[in-house]
Design a protein around this nucleic acid. Structure first.
Lengths: 150, 150
DNA sequence: CATCGTTGGTTTAATAATGCAACCATTCTT
DNA sequence: AAGAATGGTTGCATTATTAAACCAACGATG
């Protein structure tokens, strides 16, 4: 491999996002973080990831500003990994992935975990809307390219 | 690597989604497909991906039901890769990634491509709502686990 | 209809990423 | 103070990705 291509310079925001969280483990770590996990060992047990890889991914997520390393809330000298405000902004990504998986990757009768509104206990929904409130699907949308700089 | 772990059996729908599109290239291919690309060569040029990897990823996306291989619309014997209905359901994932990137991965003055409503030309928005219409953030939501089978 | 360029790949060899297991220093527990 | 748990690091084997060369089929051109 001649060095994995970086997408940092791409003008497509999705590409830049993937540059930060687009590898095999990062989003799973983030998912677990949304799920309340904070400790190295918790992630390691939950994901079954190799420890050296976990070390690197956590470091990378911290470096990107998605996680932060804070003194553990229970006092001890131990540290814990927590989602930053930026990390919490990945929430819609997680919900979108979840919704896709629910719709297409489970048999009709098969159980799966469910994301609910804490207040009502009812499932939450994700919607894409135009500014006038119309729901927008892929065919009603259009990507406006930025002019090539050169 | 001793065989990358498969998440097919996971009860978390996000994990299963990542099992299908969670690798380094697949979502970029899907992004380009949303962007209207259909041909092998178009993807290859757009992404700068090695051809053998592109071959494998396209095959995998077809096998997963996200893309389909159809006779090219312009008549010839050539084929083209098109998003299936299932593939189009990844739209919210793309929008969510885009939104995250726009918010956090660009300098204030920096240009980026923009997703707009085809009808009005105005940017589209992604929202997560409870059934009563309240907007929901990560702290108002809760993942209901399915009981461990064993 | 013979040739040439394009498309859509496959193969090969080199290098990078990942995994596993063993090891280690520090912190908790008892 | 001894032993276990936590949070890593290191080395080696295996897998994935890459670039580059190669190739077969198709289309266009003369």
């Amino acid at each position: 491999m001649v060095a994995r291509k970086s997408l940092k310079g791409d003008y497509c925001p999705s590409a830049r996002s993937l540059d930060v969280i687009g590898d095999w483990w990062s989003l799973l770590i983030v998912r677990d973080a949304f799920d309340g996990l904070t400790r190295f060992g918790e992630f390691q047990k939950s994901l079954g990831i190799a420890k050296n890889i976990l070390t690197e991914r956590l470091r990378s997520l911290v470096a990107s500003g998605i996680l932060e390393l804070a003194p553990a809330s229970e006092g001890g000298a131990r540290m814990e990994y927590r989602l930053t405000a930026m990390g919490k902004d990945l929430f819609p990504v997680m919900v979108a992935l979840r919704q896709f998986g629910e719709r297409h990757l489970f048999a009709p009768a098969e159980d799966h975990s469910l994301l609910v509104d804490r207040a009502s206990g009812q499932p939450v929904q994700l919607e894409i809307r135009a500014q006038d409130g119309r729901r927008i699907g892929p065919d009603e949308a259009l990507i406006l390219k930025v002019p090539e700089e050169k």
